[in-house]
Amino acid sequence: MKKRLATYIIALGVFGIVNTELGVVGILPQISDRFNVSASQAGMLVSMFALIIALSGPFATLLFSGINRKTILGLVVVVFAISNLVSAFSPTYSVLMLCRVFPAFLHPVYFSVAFAAAASSVPKEQSAAAVAKVFTGLTVGMVLGVPITSFIGDRYSLEVAFLFSAIVNMITFIGIVIWIPSMPVEEKLTYGKQLRIMLKPQLWMNIAATCFILAALYSLYSYFAEYLIDVTNMSGRTISFMLVIFGASGIFGNLCAGKFLSKNITVTISVYLLLLGAVYLLIFYAGKYMFPMILIIVIWGAVFAGGLIIGQTWLTSEALEAPEFANSLFVSFANLGVVFGTALGGWFLARMGTHSIVWSGISFLILASVCIGVKIRLFDFKESKSKTGNNSANR
């Protein structure tokens, strides 16, 4: 029971951090008005945050790798709470930007430690399911963070919107202090030993596949509203409701993916790519019709969220000797995948029309499939053949 509660507390922290990162999207117009800056300048609050995560993730995680995990989790959520508190009363845009930049360095540290802590808190065969529960916080933060923060900002004020994230992070801190046991690093890995995993070619194949999977996901999801407006002809209010449905089904899909990964990682990711491809084809051919598209969104949300934990598990499966550093690589390259996916999806949208952005997602799916196929053929197949040969020799 205590282990399960600890997992949910860590997941709440993930929600608070993701809401800090993405929730600001829902209040950008208010920020622009408050500080008298352009929409593009206000948008820098989001893009700078993501860029710092992508660039600093592995290095920040290395820096904190020898510290008690409970201490790190508590430290990060306190920094995020203070950041949101100061943001609520920032006198200038520059101060607000500083409040965004500093905690962004610690964002990948929390995620890396959170995934590793969740996985280590249960038997090995249940690790994927435990990580899936942590990913639930990520899913809720990504899909519901924007509308929740937007609602609070519109209903109350910009200050209250920031204070909401501060309160979530402080509640998480209290939970960490009271219910999460001390998690000292039993065997401190040297920086060199952690960096050495980067020399494994099979890890780079997994990194590439994960990056392409995230790109495939976000090349469409980034233009979710545009697609439903231009192709399905949905109203703004209906789209907001669709986002909620998308997020709710995502929680279910996330937990299901964790269970399947616990059984067989390779089969799960192979089936997943086919399933996501099928969903994208359904979106392309049935996206013009309101009711079929509503059903597709339910399925899409579940498949989308499942891809996050599948990408994380696939990447880290080749770096079990340095789990926290591997998780930081996932955070960095996942963000890089988001950048690639959004860019190519935008190119398809501008050059070929909204309806054609589906093919940007399918293009990335093909690249991910190639990476996975090559990795299985060159490394996994060779390794299993070698083991079979050794067993025959021993007999």
Score class of each variant (00 low, 15 high):
102 F>S: 01
67 I>V: 13
189 L>T: 09
260 F>H: 07
341 G>W: 11
333 F>C: 08
252 F>H: 09
66 G>M: 01
79 V>P: 07
64 F>D: 00
257 A>K: 00
28 L>T: 03
130 A>H: 05
186 E>F: 06
22 L>D: 13
142 M>Y: 05
241 F>L: 15
13 G>S: 01
43 G>N: 02
394 N>I: 14
119 A>I: 08
315 L>H: 06
211 C>E: 15
141 G>S: 11
69 R>V: 07
191 Y>K: 14
210 T>Q: 15
185 V>N: 11
74 G>I: 08
140 V>K: 00
98 L>T: 12
75 L>M: 11
142 M>N: 04
91 P>Q: 13
116 A>Y: 06
322 A>E: 11
307 G>A: 10
392 S>A: 13
306 G>R: 00
112 S>Y: 02
192 G>A: 12
125 E>G: 05
105 F>V: 12
105 F>S: 09
208 A>D: 12
38 S>L: 05
254 N>D: 06
256 C>Q: 12
274 L>M: 10
189 L>C: 06
163 L>V: 04
205 M>R: 07
30 Q>T: 09
199 L>G: 02
97 M>C: 09
268 T>K: 00
314 W>L: 07
17 I>G: 09
159 E>D: 10
246 F>G: 06
218 Y>P: 00
306 G>A: 03
104 A>Q: 01
90 S>I: 00
16 G>A: 03
266 T>M: 03
279 V>M: 07
198 M>C: 00
327 N>E: 10
238 T>S: 14
247 G>S: 01
149 T>W: 00
229 I>W: 05
93 Y>S: 15
101 V>Y: 11
235 S>T: 07
184 P>S: 11
373 G>P: 07
149 T>C: 10
220 L>A: 04
338 V>C: 08
165 S>N: 12
125 E>L: 06
143 V>L: 01
116 A>V: 05
251 I>V: 10
152 I>A: 02
259 K>L: 06
286 A>F: 14
139 T>I: 08
119 A>T: 07
184 P>C: 14
57 G>Y: 00
269 I>V: 04
188 K>F: 11
194 Q>N: 09
360 S>F: 08
224 F>I: 02
46 V>Y: 05
363 S>E: 07
193 K>Q: 11
230 D>H: 08
176 I>D: 03
27 I>N: 05
78 V>P: 10
295 L>D: 04
269 I>L: 04
143 V>S: 03
124 K>N: 07
313 T>V: 06
204 W>Q: 04
302 A>V: 14
173 F>V: 03
214 L>R: 15
158 L>T: 02
393 A>W: 13
49 F>P: 15
